[in-house]
Design a protein around this nucleic acid. Structure first.
Length: 262
DNA sequence: ATGGTAGGTCTCCTA
C-alpha cells in the first residue's frame, strides 16, 4: 500500500494550526512530521487534526522551544525518542507503522551564528548531536526506516542559493556537510528527495529576514527525507510545496513530500 | 560590515 509522508518545520504548531489544517485538507498526506512545535505535548491542538482523520499522534514537547510531532491517518506505535548530546531538548521522536516501517522525525540543532565550537557552544552541540546520531546508526544499522526532519544543513552546492557565499555560514560549512554525510553513510540512508530530483537548485527554507523571499529566492534545503537502502527503491514523487511559504502567517519552512510504495 | 523578521516568554533567548 503506497503512503505519502510530509515533513514541515512549523515554527509554533499552536500559532499555525490554521495552515496545518490547510495542508492536511488540501494535500492529505498519510503522515505529517512536524518540527519546532514550540509547545508541550498536552497543548498541541489535536482536535482539528483528528477531525480530518489524523487520529494518531506521537510527540515530544517542551515549553517555548523545539518539539517534534508525528500526525498520522495510519495506526502507529511510538518507537523511541533520543536526546543526543544530552541537551534535554525535544528534538526526536520515532514511530512504527503497521507495515513495519519506522519513521524518525528529527529537529537537529541550528548551531548558532559562528561556525567555531571554541567560540560558540551551540555549534559544538550541533556537531555532537550529529556525531551521536552517527554512532547510534553505526551500532544498530537501521532497516525499513525513513528519516525526515529539519536537519539544519544544506549539503549540496545546489541546496543553497549561493554556494561560495555560504561556505562560512552555519548550515553549509564543510565540517557540517562532512558530518551529515558521515551520519547518512553510517545508517545506509539514501536521500530520497535528491534521488527523485537529482539536478538543480532546490530549497525548503527562506529566511523571514529576506524581503521578497519568492523573487529573491535566497533559499536553502534544510529539510530532508531519507530512507534506508532496503526500501529506497520504493520512494518516489518527491516535491517541495513552495506555495506554503506564501500562505498567511507562514512558517519560514515549506513542507517536503515523498511517497513510498510499501 | 551590518541588519533585516518572527515566536515564545518574562525581558531576552532562539532561529
Amino acid at each position: 500500500m503506497p503512503f505519502t509522508l510530509a515533513t514541515w518545520n512549523i515554527n509554533s504548531v499552536r500559532l499555525r494550526e490554521p495552515i496545518v489544517l490547510k495542508l492536511l485538507e488540501e494535500e492529505a498526506p498519510d503522515v505529517l512530521c512536524l518540527q519546532e512545535c514550540k509547545s508541550p505535548v498536552e497543548k498541541i491542538p489535536t482536535e482539528g487534526f483528528a477531525a480530518l482523520g489524523y487520529t494518531h499522534m506521537v510527540a515530544r514537547g517542551q515549553k517555548g522551544y523545539n518539539g517534534v510531532a508525528i500526525l498520522s491517518k495510519l495506526p502507529m506505535v511510538e518507537a523511541g525518542a533520543e536526546d543526543y548530546a544530552s541537551l534535554n531538548h525535544a528534538r526526536h521522536i520515532a514511530a512504527r507503522l503497521e507495515n513495519g516501517v519506522t519513521i524518525h522525525n528529527f529537529y537537529v540543532p541550528a548551531g548558532g551564528d559562528i561556525p567555531d565550537r571554541d567560540k560558540n557552544e551551540k555549534f559544538g552541540q550541533k556537531l555532537d548531536y550529529l556525531r551521536e546520531m552517527k554512532e547510534d546508526f553505526h551500532a544498530e544499522k537501521p532497516e525499513k526506516s525513513i528519516l525526515v526532519g529539519d536537519l539544519n544543513i544544506a549539503p549540496r552546492e545546489d541546496d543553497v542559493w549561493n554556494h561560495k557565499q555560504l561556505l562560512k555560514v552555519v548550515s553549509h560549512t564543510p565540517i557540517e556537510v562532512e558530518q551529515l554525510g558521515a551520519t547518512q553513510d553510517a545508517g545506509g540512508w539514501v536521500d530520497i528527495t535528491r534521488q527523485d530530483i537529482p539536478d538543480g537548485p532546490l530549497f525548503s527554507w527562506w529566511s523571514y529576514r529576506s524581503p521578497q523571499w519568492d523573487t529573491a529566492d535566497k533559499g536553502r534545503r534544510l529539510d530532508h527525507v531519507w530512507a534506508t537502502g532496503d526500501i529506497s527503491n520504493a520512494g518516489h514523487s518527491s516535491r517541495v510545496l513552495r506555495a506554503a511559504r506564501g500562505w498567511e502567517k507562514p512558517s519560514d519552512h515549506a513542507p517536503v513530500f515523498a511517497t513510498f510504495d510499501l
